[in-house]
Design a protein around this nucleic acid. Structure first.
Lengths: 133, 133
DNA sequence: CAATAATGATCCATATAAAGATCATAATAT
DNA sequence: ATATTATGATCTTTATATGGATCATTATTG
């Protein structure tokens, strides 16, 4: 029943468009530092991939992502899942935090210890110091 | 015209569901290394935020993200935009690559130099070595 | 202890990232 | 030089991450 699908699709589009009038899109802005950190990570990945003589498709397959996403990652696109980026880094051998597995685990424990000493919640000074003058 | 919206919504749901029968969802799996790297980063962010006495809401606002997303970031959720994570890290003062802005820029240049020396594309050995026996 | 604020968790709607397909171009091996 | 393959770029569809609201719980201050 092709006609059904077409009609339903028309209503679907209608529904989608009625709210599309004001996209309310989220235009996110990034600091220079973030952009450069991401760019560097992407380039390190690309260098590592080539040094290991792996094609983009091979790495993408191993990481379980599309080649297109890998391209964006290597370009330092900030709108990528951090999980995908990290996974690719691992595959091509780029170390995160400059640490191996064991070191990573140790750092986690240290950080958790530190965290346990800090207050569970941050309390804003409820009242201004009552500036008497 | 509330009725219109309801009807249209019904068709919308119908349309969405006809394809939902086989979600074909992408269940991504992550390596232990990726999971721990992300967890560490999240915890470092949380520690830094508390040390600076910033509430979750304040940091979220400054980063232009929701408090919910910040929560996920601090928990090391791998399904977050890397841009959001990096931005938060910058705000609370967690250094990426253990480098300041200048160092970052220098590393980028070094990496690009390295990249320029590598072949533009990786070529798989087109033919197996013709295993004659 | 009481009051209040921060955090954690969950839900829904929607904006958007990702997959997949396709095309053009560039780069490598023979 | 030529054939072949990798890469880059763009488009559409679909899956999903995010924002925003709400509620319960926990912490902190006074």
């Amino acid at each position: 029943m092709v006609v059904h699908r077409i009609i339903i699709k028309a209503f679907y589009d209608l529904y989608m468009n009625q709210n599309k009038l004001m996209p309310k899109s989220i235009i996110r802005t990034y600091s220079r530092y973030s952009r450069e950190a991401s760019l560097l990570l992407g380039e390190l990945i690309r260098v590592a991939r080539k040094e290991r003589k792996l094609t983009a498709q091979e790495v993408a397959d191993r990481a379980g992502i599309s080649r297109g996403l890998l391209q964006r990652i290597e370009k330092g696109d900030l709108k990528c899942e951090i999980g995908a980026v990290f996974e690719v880094a691992v595959i091509v051998g780029v170390k995160l935090f400059d640490a191996d597995e064991t070191t990573l685990t140790r750092h986690i424990r240290q950080t958790e210890d530190k965290l346990s000493l800090l207050p569970k919640s941050v309390r804003r000074k409820s009242k201004v110091v009552h500036d008497d003058f």
